[in-house]
């Protein structure tokens, strides 16, 4: 939604009116920034700081991390595995679907374009309830597969574990990723694709040699946002995973609600920050630069 060079003009003009000119805009920003500092930045920093504190001891310690490792190493790896697997599957599906939607015309493509995006709008708590009924041992999926004689209902698929969780994450995130990747694909000029096709390139070749390399930015934003969202999601694993192993987000809730143990909960929280940190830092740098560039250069 950037509007081009006119923005740059006002920017320069506002700047040109002396140093008191930025006082008014700062005042307008103050309520929003104040709220973010008090209710987001403070607890964010405090979650890292408190992960090094143990009740009754003054000094900074790594005890919470030792306990987190001892009790929850399996779950930490589980979270990482499920997040990587779900993101990878969703990325492959979304690139394929976006490529199809970019290239195809006609009524079927239009219908696919309308249907695929529905999961984007469905909140996680509803997705969780849906999957609760859909993936159950005698839920709709198993009954359907049994009708096709693919499985025996006496030994239904057990899906309230990493399999069902991965299915649910892919179900929810692939749609959102397709939307972002497709917006990248749409920016590629038709002439590139037509040129490749006229030289005899088939669809997979066009995807790999033209669409993907020319939309790397959109694809990485999609992958990063999906990965950090999956890693941080509490609702879905909390409602559909039965028993162990489970995700770190569920462990954090247990630590707080059952034990009132904020130290270990914060150590686990900081570990989730670390697990997304590479992706998060790339995304922050990319988006801040893009926003600054859009305003000042158009």
């Amino acid at each position: 939604m950037s509007s081009g060079s006119p923005v740059a003009k006002t920017t320069i003009e506002h700047r040109g009116r002396g140093s008191r000119e930025w006082l008014f805009p700062l005042l307008l920003l103050l309520p929003a920034v104040g709220l973010m500092l008090a209710l987001y930045a403070y607890p964010f920093v405090s979650s890292i700081y408190r992960s090094f504190l143990v009740k009754g001891e003054g000094a900074v310690t790594l005890a919470n991390y030792a306990k987190a490792r001892q009790l929850y190493l399996r779950d930490i790896l589980f979270s990482l595995e499920v997040s990587l697997l779900s993101t990878t599957i969703a990325a492959v599906l979304s690139i394929a679907l976006a490529a199809y939607l970019r290239m195809a015309t006609g009524r079927i493509a239009k219908m696919v374009g309308a249907v695929y995006r529905l999961p984007i709008f469905i909140p996680f708590v509803v997705v969780a309830q849906m999957m609760n009924t859909f993936l159950a041992p005698h839920g709709l999926l198993n009954v359907f597969l049994a009708q096709l004689h693919l499985i025996d209902l006496k030994a239904p698929l057990q899906l309230f574990n990493w399999k069902g969780l991965t299915f649910s994450f892919v179900w929810k995130q692939a749609a959102f990723m397709t939307l972002i990747v497709l917006s990248g694909f749409k920016m590629i000029d038709d002439s590139y694709i037509e040129a490749a096709r006229s030289l005899g390139a088939r669809l997979p070749r066009v995807i790999v040699s033209i669409l993907i390399p020319m939309s790397l930015a959109s694809i990485s934003v999609a992958v990063i946002l999906a990965f950090t969202s999956i890693m941080g999601t509490f609702t879905l694993p909390y409602m559909i995973i039965a028993g162990e192993p489970t995700t770190v987000t569920v462990d954090i809730a247990h630590r707080v609600t059952y034990f009132g143990d904020y130290g270990v909960a914060n150590a686990l929280g900081t570990i989730t920050y670390l697990m997304v940190s590479f992706a998060a830092i790339y995304y922050l740098r990319y988006t801040v630069r893009k926003s600054i560039y859009e305003v000042q250069e158009g």
């Binding site: 920034v33 973010m36 607890p43 509490f234 997304v276």
Partner: peptide, 18 residues
């Protein structure tokens, strides 16, 4: 800008806990 992007880039659950 960074302040307004952080909640999108990092898990929010630890923030709610604190």
């Amino acid at each position: 800008l960074l302040l307004f992007l952080l909640p999108q880039a990092f898990p929010q659950q630890p923030v709610f806990v604190n």
